[in-house]
């Protein structure tokens, strides 16, 4: 299969969905001739014109709210928020309006809109351009939240999001835009709410999203050399959450590590741990479940500090090693 970048995969999904369904259109800051802050929409204005690739004023509340309003009348807008940090500015429209309209109105409307947004640290953009806020939106009934880690999923999940009749927030990690992977040329979708097992293993289940999936896979390679077999689950969707895949895997391995970039405190790792300990997997646990997440600091500018603020490959390796040392069955084996 041909390989393309994550950014190209997103662009293809947007282009294909606009060709497929004339109700689909894009709104965002600098998404036209500029091509978006990360070049994701570059060239789309040439094919679809400024009516469907709308450069908007610098107004996140209006962008998100207008997407909701247009969606209620049957359009299928895809809004881009230039950095996920700016979701906070549009969050009344997303949280109080778009997420709740259907339920509040007794099921009378649908709000088929998408908000795409680049998230995460690693670019030196500091505290107001580097956050991972997915947990905020996971907390809101009425929203769906996805965070693709691969080009294949970036395209397939975005297509599902556009075809979904509910508001979906898509977190795209900035560090992933240039990563490459196989992506089919024919139409396909990746279902929202279904995790992927990226690597099978028997000793530890590592549950990750987004760029942390890549770091977990790299860690798993290193741990394999030490005889530790790691299963890596890429959640892909945070809401709805594929609890079945998580529970099944932990029943098999008896150990779990959750990794995310968002702050550990009140991050979604807690939700995953809750899912595990409330399920039959509890009986299979050989060790406490471990959470790795961002340190409780705003993302700093200095590159060494920035790196230290979020989990890295070596942190995942260390956590897994530690976990094995704590486990009675492994100690007996060693």
């Amino acid at each position: 299969m041909r390989e393309i970048t994550y950014a190209q995969a997103v662009r293809e999904a947007l282009a294909e969905e606009m060709r497929r369904d004339e109700r689909v259109f894009l709104m965002g800051e600098d998404i036209g001739v500029y091509g978006g802050a990360f070049g994701v929409t570059l060239g789309l204005i040439d094919e679809f014109g400024p009516e469907r690739v709308m450069d908007t004023p610098l107004s996140e509340a209006a962008i998100i709210g207008a997407a909701a309003g247009a969606a209620v009348l049957g359009m299928r807008p895809v809004a881009e928020v230039q950095f996920s940090d700016f979701l906070t500015i549009g969050s009344d429209q997303l949280v109080n309006q778009a997420a709740k309209m259907r339920y509040m109105f007794g099921g009378k409307v649908r709000v088929p809109m998408v908000v795409r947004t680049p998230a995460g640290s690693g670019t030196g953009a500091a505290a107001q351009h580097s956050q991972s806020l997915e947990t905020w939106f996971m907390h809101i009934p009425g929203l769906k939240v996805v965070a693709p880690a691969t080009p294949y999923d970036a395209k397939g999940l975005l297509k599902s999001a556009i075809r979904d009749d509910n508001p979906v927030v898509v977190f795209e990690h900035k560090l992933l835009y240039k990563t490459k992977g196989p992506v089919p040329e024919e139409d396909y979708t990746v279902p929202i709410g279904k995790a992927a097992i990226r690597r099978e293993g028997t000793d530890i289940t590592v549950i990750a999203t987004s760029v942390m999936v890549l770091r977990s896979l790299a860690a798993a390679d290193r741990l394999a050399e030490e005889g530790i077999s790691v299963e890596v689950i890429d959640l892909r969707s945070l809401r709805p959450l594929d609890t079945e895949t998580i529970v099944k895997s932990v029943c098999k391995t008896g150990r779990a590590v959750v990794v995310h970039e968002a702050n550990k405190f009140a991050g979604f790792g807690g939700e995953i741990v809750g899912t595990i300990v409330e399920s039959e997997a509890f009986d299979y646990l050989d060790a406490p479940v471990v959470r790795l997440g961002g340190k409780d600091v705003p993302i700093p500018y200095n590159p060494q500090l920035e790196r230290a603020a979020v989990p890295q490959e070596e942190d995942i390796v260390a956590a897994c090693r530690n976990l094995m040392r704590q486990s009675p069955r492994w100690r007996a084996r060693a």
Binding site: A125, A126, Y301, N302
Partner: peptide, 16 residues
């Protein structure tokens, strides 16, 4: 330059 003695102790950078 992200230095400890900079205006924001290297935490903020240009934008802060």
């Amino acid at each position: 330059r992200g230095k400890e003695t900079g205006y924001c102790r290297g935490r903020g950078g240009s934008m802060h």
